[in-house]
Structures are given as structure tokens and as C-alpha cells.
Design a protein around this nucleic acid. Structure first.
Lengths: 212, 212, 212, 212
DNA sequence: CATGAATGAGCTTTCATTCAT
DNA sequence: CATGAATGAAAGCTCATTCAT
């Protein structure tokens, strides 16, 4: 799983324009797969579609990736890692105050969801199409992300800063709201990611019933 | 699209038990399709899977339903109608007060999502697999539902009862939070639908920043 | 594994003429598979070749048989059973005398090998292409056949009728000689199966060094 | 067809140990091909399998050998020549007596079959996978070998030393018995090649009904 | 009402082979 | 000498759908 190489492309993605093999076959294929998986879903996508959009032959796809399933797992793992790392960094930069930490986490999440809409949607919608083996492996990462939110909210509640009665439902609501952004946000619209993050930070703070 | 017949069954569904032909072949098939579409997604499901789970032959399936796509459209239409009608009724029973109306709508939504988890998930996840023709037709319904929420919140804001700055984001957040319930709720758990509805009503009221 | 149906065709086979679906799809396919497996070997045969020679579509092949491997296993099982049964019958008809019993077994074997050359060659040459699961299952039959020979020869040796020093090598030589018949025998030649059987009976009796 | 080079290796082969490039890439590949062709058959073997077992790249394989078919033809030709030559030598060392000559030929054959089991099995099982062109060319060698046996037996019969009635069947039986050795002989067992040769010499003499 | 049999198009994957470097 | 990257063809198999009965 060549991570650095794949990630270097990631930042240049997110639009719907046809992929021309720039950085070699491997990235062309992951890029194309990302697009089409997002558009039509895993089972709605054929490997031929992917190869064609990548501008390569079908055999070239199999030269770089052992299977369609592996391609999906790679994409999900990559973006889950990426997202998780950004959350981690944001929390490191934040101080000790629960509200400030919540701001950081919501901000990181919303910004990731709008700057990597495609990856985000694959991560949430195609999870169930992972093989049991892959799912099990990646479930650890997913649980870590959940714990980030849960610990943060629990801390705020314990300190009396957050007054919400049901921290689990607060967490689920915030996460659902942030994730949904990837499904409707239009990158060409007139609302910037930072602006959007501010809005969802405000909403999250109300959901946890922040006393500030 | 024989609607009355299909909808009569809908209320008896929602559980995961094996499908036994009650109302004849037609319902057995819709029931089976509902289950498997929810489990594996539209493209991950084969018509043979459906016929087999319904305990009928493949040809029987085609006797009752013209195509796999039609089956999907029927399911989505059915449950969208059903959900929309419940919202309508709940709002009719509610008075004029925006907070009370929001309570009614969130309550109806959460209760539908937990009592019809399967249909709800199909409605949200498989929408993109509708043929353009079907999608266009059903988009009207979807927009109507959106308008229900939007109008309600706009009214609350206009009256100064809701103080949220961005009503669209408030709406999207509430809807996302309510819809997500269908993905994690465990019907055998110890939390009742009514209880859950109350929790999400509280969260929704905080999201719109209700002054009450 | 519908045995009766498949076996009814077996007797009508053995020639190389193109198969026309007479007794329905199933037999047409087993017949075609038998021919082409014998001609080109298991891995040298494509399922498309088989379907084409059977005069059916590729999908029809899969309607009747779950896999290419299953087709091979069916053919081998069928003919192994068939051969084994003939040996059994021949031995039942024979008396107690070892030489007479050896005559019976060699006769049954040679006659089966020439009247079912195709099946015989598949049985000996394609055995290694069986899946472990199938191989294991059928190994029982094969061992039974070996035991038929081994017991017979051991009895002759014990009674002092056969004087060969190495009964195992005698057995292997006889079996190899009889099986090889299927590889060179020309059904259109001027030597009858019964005649051929007599020749190999004589050879076998010399191999075991029959004192008679 | 570089023969001298290839044949120099042949004598060092015959075991099943992993191939380590001794005489450079060429021999590593022929060695690997020999192993895998014997294990899985020609069509069951991929050129990638061969290259991998040889510890070389796929392109290296094509550098040394023009095609998979050529590889097969090389192996078969090599071992057929090798076997034929040993027979020739054995017969040269033998005198004029038919029984002595038969001893020599059976001995040479059995010893070759056990010391080159892998090559022997390829020679007998994969012959049919040769291209028409290669098959035709090598058929000359095969016929020469057959003639060796046929002439020898005919001479014995003519001199009244061998009393068998059907020399062709005697020949086929002896050859089949000797060739079969390669399929069941276990090199790690407690029976030596020389011992085994003696046993089959005895059997062969009985098959031709030697009067000695 | 319902079935068993069949089909053509498509699926994911592997094949032997090539070629610029 | 040897490689990494790529390809067209074909492999085994499944798909949604049809149709005579």
C-alpha cells in the first residue's frame, strides 16, 4: 500500500474532470476509481469503467492493483487515515478547553468533508462493501475516530461545560451533520469552507449545549 | 404502480424476519427486495437473490414486477409517500406554534426512521440508483419534504422564536441527525422510539436555538 | 448429481461426432465436455468450447452445471462408478478360482477401456485436475478398485496358484497395460474388444506367473 | 534450440528441490518449467509461475525462451533424446541374445523413469500439447523408440526364444508397465532403482514368454 | 399464476506476449 | 542481460431478462 504516492495526488483531486495519467499508472487508476466509486457506488462500477477513465487498459489496472476490492480498501484506508490525522493535528493545536477542542474537531471535519467530498462519500457509503477481512482491519481506525468525539464530549460534560443530557446522541448528531456536508456542498458556490466550518461549529456547540 | 395494494403491506413490515408470502406473491417479493436491497445495496443484489428469499421462482418475480429497477422505484416511492404522509398528519395535529410544529416533525421523523429502518436506509442510500425517469418523478416528493422543514424553520425565525443564523444549515443538520438514527438504532435495545424521539426533539430545538 | 439421466447417454457416446442436444441440455453438455476434455485436457478446454459443441449458449451450461470443475468431477465420478460396477459384476459371475477371477477382471477392464475410451482417458489423465475436495471424495472409489486387484492377486499367491514374486508390481503392470489400451485402440480397426480382452488376459496370467 | 547447453543440465536434474540459477538464467527457467509442467500440466501452468519459481522476472524468461510452447518442446525433445540415447547405449553394451537385449532395454527404461520421473511424466502426459509442427518433428524420435522395442521382440519371436502370440500387445504392455513406474515411484522409499529394474525385467520376460 | 429452460451482454480476473529502456 | 510497464484476447462466471408451456 504505497501511501505517500497515492496521497500526493489526493490533493489535486475532488473535481469531476477526466483523469489523464500524470503521475504514472497507479495514481491514474486510484484517481479514476475514486471518482467512479463516488458517482455510481462500488457495485455500480465496473473495472472496465475505471480503466477507461484512467486512460489505461484493463490489464494495466490489474498490474497496479490486485483486485477491485483491494482498490476500494485502499481508497477507504487512505482517506480514513488522512482524515484521522487531520483531526489529531487539530486537537494537538487546540488547548485543554472542551469548547475549544470541539471547535477544532468540527472545523477539521467540515474542512476535510468539503475539500475531499469524493473520498468522504466513499468512506461513508461504501464501507459496507468492504470484505469482512478489510472491514475488520479498518474498523479499528473508525472506532478511534469515534472515541475522539466521545472522549471530548464526555470531558466537557464532566467539567460541567457541556450540559447536554445524552452525550451519545449529541455526538451522533454532530457527526451526522458534519458528514452530510460532503453530500450537498458545491465547491463552486459562494460559501467558503472556513465560513461553513464556523457555522457547523456554532451548531455543534448548541447541540452539546455549551454554557460559554 | 399498484399503490394501494403495496402500501397496505408496508405497515406490517420493518422487521428482519424471513419473508413468508402473506398477501400473495407480490408482497413476498417486495418484502424480500426491501430486505436485500437494504443489506447489500441495489447493485449488490441480484433478482435471483430476491426471488429466492421470497421463496418464489424467478419467473414469478417477473410476473409481479416488470423489472428490478421498477422494484426499487416502487419501494422508494412507497416509503417516501408513507413518511411524507406521517409528517403531514403530525403537522396537522400540531398547532400554530413553531416549536410545537418542530417537535411534531422531528417526532414523526425519528419514529418513522426507527420503525421503518430498512425502508429509510433504502430511501437515503439507493436514491442514486434510480433511473433518471424515476428519479425525476420522485424528486417532487423529496422537495416537498424539504419544504416542510424549510417553511417551518423560516416561520420560527421570522417570528423571532428560533434564533439560528443559518436556517438552511440548521435544517440540514436536523434532518441528517434524524436520518442517521436508522443506521445505528437497535430495535432490541432498551431505548424506546418515543424516548429517542424526545431526545432528538431536544437536540433539534437547540439547533434552531429555540428561545422557549 | 443426477446419475441415471447422465448414464443413459453414456452408452451412446464414445464417438467423435458433433453433439446435437437430443436428451435435453444437461446431457448435451456432459457429452460435449467429455469429448473436449478428452481431446485437449481440462485446462486446455474452455467452457465456451463445451457450450458451443453442445450447441447451447454459455449461460445454458451454467444453468445445468455449477462450474467447470463440477463438470469434470461428475464425468470422472460417473465413469469410475460405471467401471467399478462392471468389475464387481464380472467378479460375482466368476467362481472362486484366482485365475478365473483374474480373467474376469482383466476382461471387464479391457472391455470397458475400449468401449469407453473417452471416459477412461479422462479418468486416468485428468484426475490431478480435480479440486482437493473432489479428489478426496473420489479417492475412496479408486482405492476400492485397487483393492479388487490386490486382493485377487494376493489370494492367488497365497494359494500357490500365482508364482510372481512381487504382487504389487504385477498388479501395477497389469493395470497399466489394460489402461493403456484406451490410448491406442482404434474402434474402426479389425480387432474386436472380446479378442483384445483375450490377449490381455493371457498377458496378465503370464505376469502373475500363473501355474495353470 | 540450443541443445548442448540445455542437455548438460539435464543430468543434474530430476529432484524436486527449488531451482537456484546455476548455469545462469536459461537453466533456471527450464528447471522451473520442468517442475511446474509436471505438477500442473502445460495448460495449468502460467509463464509467470515459471518465472517466479526460477527466481527471475517475466521478461528474463522471454529473453531466454521465445515462447511457452518452445519451452515445452525443448523439455520434451531434451528428455526424449536423453532417454533414447541411454537405450541405445544399453543395447550396444548388450550382446546378440534377445533376452539379454530385452533386459538391457527394460533396465535402461526403468532406470530412466525413476531417475528422471519429472521429465518422463512430461514426455508422456504433455505430448498432446505440442504444436502440430513440434509434434511432427518429435514424432520421428518416438517412432524410433517404438522400433527399438518392436525389432527386439520380433527378433526374439523369430528365433523362437520368445513365445508370445501377439508381439505388439507384449510390447505395449511392457512399455506401459515401465512408463507407469514414473507415476508411483517414491525416490525416498527403500527400494533402489536397480532392484526395481530387476523386477520389471522379470515381468517383461514373462510377458514375452521367454523360454529361458 | 407460475415454472423451467434458455439467452446475450456483461462481470472480474488471468493469460501469453511485447517493448522501451 | 534484464527490467518494469503495458496490452489484447480470452478465461470462468453472473447478470437481468425472456418465453413457450
Amino acid at each position: 500500500m504505497v501511501h505517500a504516492g497515492a496521497m500526493s495526488t489526493a490533493s489535486a483531486e475532488g473535481n469531476g474532470s477526466p483523469v489523464i495519467p500524470r503521475g504514472g499508472g497507479r495514481d491514474a487508476i486510484t484517481g479514476a476509481a475514486r471518482q467512479i466509486f463516488a458517482e455510481r457506488g462500488y457495485h455500480g462500477t465496473s473495472v472496465r469503467d475505471i480503466a477507461q477513465r484512467a486512460g489505461l487498459s484493463l490489464s494495466a489496472l490489474y498490474y497496479w492493483h490486485p483486485s477491485k476490492q483491494h482498490l476500494l480498501a485502499t481508497l477507504i484506508e487512505e482517506s480514513t487515515h488522512d482524515y484521522f490525522q487531520r483531526c489529531d493535528e487539530a486537537l494537538c493545536d487546540a488547548g485543554d478547553d472542551p469548547a475549544e477542542r470541539l471547535r477544532a474537531l468540527v472545523g477539521a471535519t467540515v474542512e476535510y468533508r468539503v475539500s475531499h467530498r469524493v473520498q468522504s462519500n466513499i468512506g461513508t457509503l461504501e464501507w459496507r462493501n468492504l470484505d469482512p477481512e478489510n472491514r475488520e482491519r479498518l474498523d479499528g481506525l473508525r472506532r478511534s475516530a469515534t472515541r475522539l468525539w466521545a472522549d471530548l464530549i464526555a470531558d466537557g460534560v464532566a467539567r460541567g461545560v457541556f450540559r447536554c443530557r445524552e452525550p451519545d446522541d449529541a455526538r451522533r448528531s454532530i457527526v451526522a451533520a458534519c458528514n452530510a456536508v460532503a453530500q450537498w456542498y458545491e465547491p463552486d458556490g459562494d460559501i467558503t469552507p472556513a465560513e461553513l466550518a464556523e457555522r457547523y461549529i456554532a451548531i455543534a456547540l448548541r447541540i452539546v449545549d455549551d454554557r460559554g
